[in-house]
Design a binder for these strands. Structure first.
Lengths: 345, 345
DNA sequence: CTGAAAGCGCTTACAG
DNA sequence: CTGAAAGCGCTTACAG
């Protein structure tokens, strides 16, 4: 039709062409012709001309006028990483469906970005914010939904995994296989899930009659998103000389690191040591051996986060109740766990 | 300072408070006080009041007035996937540095989204678009930079890997290890890299005196982003009964799939069959065995794409020359390749 | 049934 | 040195 695609006219130009007022054209284009009882003839003319010239309203002007940007912000720790991007997939599903777009920013645990990014997004007039595994440190003037946030800030809705159930699934699986000396790798202190997960484990070991041996509990330090930190910490575990037959790792990448360290020490997985991961990111199934792990419905968590945020935006409640939506884990048994052997390491 | 963080005043309100005209306040806030020779006293008052009230200009109004949104769009095949997100990391590095934000959308190879998403982003007034491994099907009214696009559309700048060098690195590595019967897994037809990579391989096999056996060439069909398609195609390869001692896979995830299929057939990697991947995503190093692969500098490609796009935007050239920026691969030797054994499969 | 006017919140020539 | 006015491109009460 037009020579330059998208080189769209303005409303004013289009109206001039049609010899109609802007307001009339605006009404027809926005599907409010009936409401204003605009004649069929006029409607036809407008619609045809709009199509012919590829008219599309300037969204910036529209946003200014309507005070709605149909944009939300998403903040994640690290963009090049499986956990966040699985959630993002779900966020996208829901948002695009409703005509919303989103900005993504990553903070990499830098305090300046943790504070600055939400502000910048607000300055960009986002209508709401989704924080993935990221603490929100101040009150924000838009609705906030947090995925694995755990801060319970006033007015923030949390999408959270049932960690007690997760611990139960993992630990009873290990117990059934005969493991009693289990080593634990806790997450970095910066990760919002760390405390919750650990409390749940402590709780469930009691329920199941499993002892936690303090020497068999280590914590990730380095923020490196790869398997390195898991390797490091597993070496420490082996160095202590305390025997164990299984490791419950903070996440899949850490579990993969643990397996690397175990192999270095000539220990076979799962024959000598069983390893359980957490998250069920893509790498869990492609690893060799494929990881037994706790599946988090990450994509679904993203969908729930997005649809919840959209609901808050629609309702326009300035300070909704802080509350929690719980999602449920699943045990995925693959090849990194097996019946405990006679020999302990 | 103010009770509600970010509940920012408008320029007009702030000016009223100070009993100054909007224009004066605007000038000071935008750092143009000197240019307009505004008195020190006034500057102080304005700056202080702005800080006290947390004044920040409404970016929507600003964008409308200046006709600049400081926003770009990024389109990728799949958001929950290592290749795209590695590139996105680099894109973010450069963009945020310059005060730009970006929208991300994924098309999942759906024709309607491939066409619709760029249009929607244009309607959102992005100043430019970065297309990652995604063909651009029509002329767009903003600058476009393509990462691994290969379409050479008029006015689009391509960031491309030197595939000939990549093929040379992989094939001479295999040749040095004594492999002569090499199987090849080509990419899906929808992937922009597929043709280029294959041409480069054909070219380099000739240069190195390696024969391509037609029965040992298979192509990925399924669009599933996991290792499944690689497993499938490797089974076919084994079913043909043609002997081979090495596989050069289209990417790391496919290589991982190939290894799974090889194991099913009781073949050891690398003892019986060597496998070379491509990309060097995180999974390549964490896999067991860790993959020998061709490293693509994905993050760097993202950085180059973003800084190039920003340059085009700054220059305001409506239709720059189509051109190509080449980046270089690196061979990463890990544990999935070894000297050829006497026995052929 | 359609139009004229105001206004969203900025920036910037133009005056003085 | 500072202000008054126009205008970016829309939408929507208010008229008639």
């Amino acid at each position: 039709m037009s020579e330059k695609p998208f080189k769209s006219l303005t409303l004013k130009e289009l109206s001039a062409l049609l010899d109609l007022d802007q307001s009339t054209v605006s009404r027809v284009v926005n599907g409010e012709a009936d409401k204003y009882r605009i004649s069929q003839a006029t409607q036809q003319r407008v619609l045809q001309a709009a199509a012919a010239h590829g008219y599309a309203a300037n969204n910036v002007a529209r946003s200014l006028r309507l005070k709605r940007t149909h944009t939300v912000g998403v903040i994640v720790p690290e963009i090049s990483e499986g956990y966040s991007t699985s959630v993002l997939g779900g966020v996208e599903d829901e948002l695009l469906k409703e005509g919303y777009f989103y900005f993504v920013v990553s903070h990499r645990h830098r305090p300046d970005l943790l504070k600055g990014h939400p502000r910048m997004m607000i300055a960009r007039a986002v209508e709401g914010i989704i924080a993935v595994d990221t603490p929100i440190e101040e009150d924000l003037p838009v609705p906030v939904v947090s995925v694995s946030g755990h801060k319970h800030r006033e007015g923030v809705i949390n999408i959270e995994l049932d960690h007690v159930r997760a611990a139960q699934l993992a630990l009873s699986h290990l117990k059934e296989l005969g493991h009693t000396r289990i080593a634990f790798i806790k997450g970095q202190t910066v990760s919002s899930d760390t405390d919750r997960r650990w409390s749940a484990i402590v709780h469930q070991t009691k329920a199941l009659g499993i002892c936690i041996v303090p020497q068999l509990v280590v914590q990730l330090q380095s923020l490196d998103p790869g398997p390195g930190p898991g390797v490091e910490v597993t070496r420490q575990l082996l160095d202590t000389g305390h025997p164990f037959t299984a490791i419950f790792a903070f996440n899949d990448i850490t579990a993969i690191g643990a397996i690397i360290a175990l192999r270095e020490a000539s220990l076979r997985v799962p024959k000598d040591v069983s390893v359980v991961g957490f998250d069920d990111v893509l790498a869990a199934s492609t690893n060799s051996p494929p990881l037994t792990t706790i599946h988090q419905p990450l994509r679904n968590m993203g969908q729930v986060a997005a649809s919840t945020l959209l609901k808050l935006i629609r309702e326009g409640t300035p300070h909704p109740q802080s509350s929690t939506l719980t999602v449920y884990p699943r045990l995925v048994v693959r090849k990194s766990t097996s019946q405990v052997a006679g020999r302990e390491v």
